[in-house]
Amino acid sequence: MGEIGTLIRHFALLSLLAFGGGNTVLPEMHRQAVEVSGWLTEQQFADLFAIAQAAPGPNILIVTLIGWQVAGLAGALAATAAICTPACTLTYIAANLWHRFRDRPWRRILQRGLAPVTVGIVAAGAWVVAETVDRSLVALALTLATAAVSLWTRLNPLWVLVAGGVLGAAGWV
C-alpha cells in the first residue's frame, strides 16, 4: 500500500509538470523509478520504454507498465489514474476558458514563452533515453536510423523497431 501511495503521489505531481507531453517527464520518471525509489533497474526502464513506444496508444502509458512492475494490477491502474487525473481536470476547465480568451495578446505570450522550455526538456528526455539504451554501436545506429526515418521519409518508423527486434534476437545489439 505504501508503494502505491508513492506511485500516486509521484505520478500525480508529474502530471502537472508534463508540459509539452509525456516525453517531457521521462528524465524525471527515470530519476524517480531508477535512482530514487529503485523500483526498476536501468535495463528494465529501457525495456518498459521500448514496450510503451512500440505498443499502440499514448506513450505516456509507460507509467502503466512501471505501476505493474511495482504493485501488479492495482499499481498499474493507480499509476495510470494518477498521471491522467490532475492534467485532465485542468484541461477540462481550461478548454472552456481557452475559447473565450483566444484573441488576447497574453495568450500568445504564454505560448511563446513556453515553447523553448518544452523543446529543451524534450531534448533532455531524448538524451536520457538514448544514453540508457545505446550500449553498443549497433544500438546507436538503430537510434539514428529511426530518427532519420521519421525525420526524412514517409516510412512508418515501426519498421525500424521491428528491425531492431530482429537484430536484437540475433544477438547483435
Binding site: A46, A50, V133, D134, A145, P157, G164, G168, A169, V173
Partner: peptide
C-alpha cells in the same frame, strides 16, 4: 528488447 529500445529512442530524438 535491447534492439527495439535502441530503435525506439530514435523516435524521441526525431521529435
Amino acid at each position: 528488447f535491447a534492439g527495439v529500445a535502441a530503435a525506439a529512442a530514435g523516435l524521441i530524438v526525431a521529435m
